[in-house]
Design a protein around this nucleic acid. Structure first.
Length: 874
RNA sequence: GCGAGAGUGGCGGAACUGGUAGACGCACUGGACUUAGGAUCCAGCUCUGGUGACAGAGUGGGAGUUCGAGUCUCCCCUCUCGCACCA
């Protein structure tokens, strides 16, 4: 073993060793308990960033720990390889998305291997492989057959210049992010998954996921957004049509004095047709269709609307009320129609004030009387019904039920629930995705591609369009096909691709049998490995990805392919990796390599001017506050990088980058290394201490106890709490005790210091050093393998079982007792561990330090806490 | 606005079921070893007063429960995150 710790050579050697021996390769083995550990797979964006390093390091520690605990650990890795960045990069560089993606995968795979992660690379998958998306297409068809997927016309953000659909995030202030031209709402035929059929089940099970952070389950609950209420039908005057509204406040129906429809509501043009308001209404619809969706979502957005010219009848009062179309009515929520009760809804109130509409109070607060003519805001609290016919005098909460019953009994409406969750639109007018396996035939309609013709392979020789639209619709050899049902040769393939969230909704199942070619997965393998015991990833996926995965698992269960509903038993959402930004007055944000430091003040290397520290923010290219993991690997090695990521913060919290922190980690590893270098020659050939603690005394006994305490703490911290930071600090403490035990071994000259040691001294030291190495091994695996071997162990250290602690070693024959007087710390003493409460009391009362505070005062009470403290109340 | 979480030294962060607040690390200070050290080892390091032993204050602010509160309860302030014209 080298005198000096040289991570670079060690790490490459052990990585090669693990790979040669296939240490991380696993198979289903019913004789062992399985553990499926999964980290969210990366998008192959180019190279690994610190967020990946942190995420995968956390996972790796758990995986390696579980391996040492004897579990059969499935720990796979793959690539979420479809998506827009590949297309954009391909357009920018005039290359192909596939080439770009595969190059990135190659680069990133090498990086992951350099960090020493324990993946079973034989199970690697990439979602852009036809052998992967083949089964996704197959499932799509199965879902189509069971009517779990359907097609409808829906609005999308459309950029006419780029000829493409934009995601909401790509619309900036109503303009296209790429070309800066106006974005419109366009109706397109699109495929939808009926996730709303599962809304209730997905919601109910949120409370049955004890291993998930509550934050995530509440976010999902809010996203699903179940609200109880009623549907009420308002007949339109002089028409057979009826407007159905959804409300959660049917108790206020007597106060509904007007109606608002969403601009997209199909009745709006119809109601205004031919009337004097038609022109104005159509103008309003047009204006709204051009408006950016995100701007609509701002609360301060001015409420506006226009009268359609039509009236409908409030079914409870019989009054005719005007029908408006208004910008605050959302087509996506409820029925797209709102019964407006200005007295009891703030939004309706503002609208009524603006357009001079009636305000009728139907709920009175207790002990007060509201007067609609002087109200300045809506009264939204509970109260007593008034102006509500036979329901007057009831508490409004009671009236809710009664009115709902009345509506049902008189066929005017019904009790219902409404969800915020909408069906999942998966059609993308994009190239780099999995083709939707459907064929459109003039005669037969929409026909699925026959199973034996799957996969529908995405043509890889397509030229991308300059504007970014999909080239598939102009690729005749792809598009033109024969109808599988009638043979009509003029049929056309669907040229849309699937949302990339579809691929990531089932990849965890594919890992169980990634090469299986008779189905999505081998059911036996899935039975063995699933569910995922621990899933780890960023909180940014708390809603969509996790909800979609839960949905897919339910679909597969209902189709009979799996026998469970929930894919992920435990979930850990790790925090972000952050760093302060640095900006130059002239050049804006600066990359770390564009900054030099004079003392501690940053300076711009381009102009030499002083720069400023900005806020601590998530590492991002746009803020330029990024640290390239490659640089860390070269400078410090993988183990130090891993150690820092774990030590600087608990996993669920944000981690602030600190160069000094990394150096602290390196220093610690060097410290352990030197300890090993000094001691291995004297302890390599001896056995670890196997005797009883009673054979030891003094400092040596303390070290022995510390070894076992540390083992217990580290085991708990990793296994139950994932608090790697405190686990590491516990090992640091142990190392400090080892250094302190033989102080003559400190400093430079230690030539003679380790001779003439007693057998129990070398034995305890050997056990202690072994323990340090084993406890650290999940965190710094290369380092630990190296030292383990140097200590005479056989690699890999992963096949060594996790150290056990001896409960007997944890109990000392003395205990430290704290004395409090009136709750304040006044002294401490040690006493034999078998002393009883009375002995403690006596010892405390006669303690010199305590006496000062007791003397001359009356003792009212003495509280003794077993083995801990004595509190004297005077 | 609604929902969730968090406020502890100069900094990152410890403190499991209420029981020694500040573990561990960083930074800083002093010492040792040194030709030298940004290497290493040892020591100090919440604030205030005192040379000192020691005393007092102290976990965002205010009340409360308790022998005892960072931890439990109530009110308030600040920050972060998520959802947001959801009828």
């Amino acid at each position: 073993m080298e005198e000096r710790y040289d991570p670079i050579s060690i790490e490459a050697r052990w990585q090669a060793f693990w790979e040669d021996k296939g240490v991380f390769r696993v198979n289903e083995d019913i004789s062992k308990e399985k553990y499926y550990l999964l980290e969210m797979f990366p998008y192959p964006s180019g190279k690994i960033h610190m967020g990946h390093v942190r995420n995968y390091t956390i996972g790796d520690v758990i995986a390696r720990y579980k391996m040492m605990r004897g579990f059969n650990v499935l720990h796979p890795m793959g690539w979420d390889a479809f998506g827009m960045p590949a297309e954009n990069a391909a357009i920018a560089n005039n290359t192909h998305p596939a080439g770009w993606t595969y190059d990135n995968i190659d680069t990133m795979r090498i990086q992951l291997k350099q960090i020493g992660f324990s993946y079973d690379w034989d199970r690697e998958l990439a979602t852009c492989h036809p052998e992967y998306y083949r089964w996704e297409q197959w499932l799509f068809i199965k879902m189509f057959e069971k009517k779990m997927v359907y097609r409808k016309e829906a609005y999308v953000n459309w950029c006419g210049t780029c000829q493409t659909v934009l995601a909401n995030e790509q619309v900036e202030a109503g303009l296209c992010w790429r070309c800066g031209k106006e974005v419109v709402q366009k109706k397109l035929w699109q495929w939808f998954f009926k996730i709303t059929d599962y809304a209730d089940d997905l919601l109910d099970y949120c409370d049955q996921l004890p291993g998930w952070p509550e934050k995530v389950t509440t976010m999902q609950k809010n996203w699903i957004g179940k609200s109880f209420g009623a549907e009420i039908r308002f007949p339109i005057e002089n028409s057979d049509e009826v407007i159905t509204v959804f409300t959660t406040r049917q108790d206020t129906v007597f106060g509904a004095t007007f109606m608002c429809l969403a601009p997209e509501h199909p009745l709006v043009p119809e109601l205004s047709k031919g009337g004097e308001h038609e022109k104005e209404v159509l103008g309003f619809i047009d204006k709204m269709s051009k408006q950016d969706r995100s701007a609509k979502g701002v609360e301060s957005y001015e409420k506006e609307g226009v009268f359609t010219g039509a009236f409908c009848i409030n079914p409870m009062t019989g009054n005719r009320i005007p029908v408006y179309t208004a910008n605050f009515a959302l087509m996506e929520y409820g029925t797209g129609a709102v019964m407006c009760v200005p007295a009891h809804d703030q939004r309706d109130f503002e609208f009524a004030k603006k357009y001079g509409l009636d305000i009728v109070v139907v709920i009175q607060p207790k002990g007060k009387t509201l007067d609609s003519s002087v109200m300045t805001e809506a009264y939204i609290e509970d109260g007593v019904q008034v102006n509500s016919g036979e329901f007057d005098g009831l508490l409004n909460r009671k009236a809710m039920d009664k009115i709902a019953d009345y509506l049902e009994a008189h066929d005017l409406g019904r009790k219902t629930v409404n969800f915020r969750l909408r069906d999942w639109g998966i059609s993308r007018q994009r190239y780099w995705g999995a083709p939707i396996p459907m064929i459109h035939c003039e005669k037969c309609g929409v026909v699925p591609v026959p199973e034996d013709q799957l996969p529908v392979v995405l043509p890889e020789d397509a030229d991308l369009l300059e504007g970014g639209g999909s080239p598939l619709s102009s690729l005749d050899y792809f598009k033109k096909t024969a109808c599988p049902a009638c043979g009509n040769t003029d049929a056309e393939r669907d040229t849309d691709t699937m949302d990339t969230f579809v691929e990531s909704s089932w990849y965890f199942l594919r890992y169980c049998s990634p090469k299986y070619d008779k189905g999505m997965f081998d059911r036996e393998a899935v039975k063995y490995w699933m569910s995922v015991d621990q899933y780890i990833g960023g909180v940014e996926h708390a809603i969509l990805h996790l909800l979609y995965s839960r949905y897919f698992t339910r679909v597969l269960k209902d189709l009979g392919f799996v026998d469970f509903k929930e894919p992920f038993t435990r979930l850990l959402t790790q925090g972000m990796v952050c760093k302060e930004t640095v900006s130059c007055p002239e050049h804006g944000f600066l990359f770390p390599e564009e900054t030099v430091y004079k003392e501690t003040d940053p300076q711009c290397t381009k102009c030499g001017k002083p720069a400023d520290f900005g806020r601590v923010e998530k590492m991002s290219k746009s803020k330029k506050n990024v640290i390239d993991p490659n640089i860390l690997l070269k400078k410090y090695g993988a183990d130090t990088t891993r150690l820092f990521c774990l030590f600087a913060a608990p996993p669920e919290k944000d981690l602030e980058w600190s160069e000094q922190g990394v150096e602290g980690g390196a220093r610690f590893l060097n410290r352990v290394w030197r300890l090993a270098v000094d001691w291995i020659p004297v302890i390599k050939e001896v056995d670890g201490f196997n005797g009883k603690p009673s054979e030891l005394s003094g400092k040596l006994l303390e070290l022995y106890q510390k070894v076992h305490q540390t083992t217990k703490k580290v085991t708990n911290d990793i296994d139950e709490r994932f608090h790697f930071n405190t686990a590491i600090s516990a090992v640091m403490e142990l190392v400090n005790v080892m250094y302190a035990l033989f102080p003559e071994n400190s400093g430079k000259d230690k030539s003679n210091s380790l001779k003439d040691l007693k057998p129990e001294e070398t034995g305890v030291m050997k056990s202690a050093l072994e323990t340090v190495i084993l406890l650290l091994s999940p965190v710094v695996p290369h380092f630990s393998e190296e030292l383990w071997q140097a200590l005479g162990g056989t690699p890999s250290i992963l096949s060594v079982s996790w150290p056990k602690y001896n409960e007997d070693a944890l109990v000392s024959d003395e205990m430290l007792i704290v004395i409090q007087v009136n709750g304040k710390l006044r002294g401490k003493f040690t006493i034999s561990a078998d002393a009883d409460d009375d002995a403690l009391k006596e010892a405390a009362l006669s303690h010199d330090q305590a006496k000062k505070f007791i003397d001359g005062k009356e003792i009212r009470k003495v509280i003794v806490v077993k083995k801990k403290l004595v509190n004297i109340v005077v």
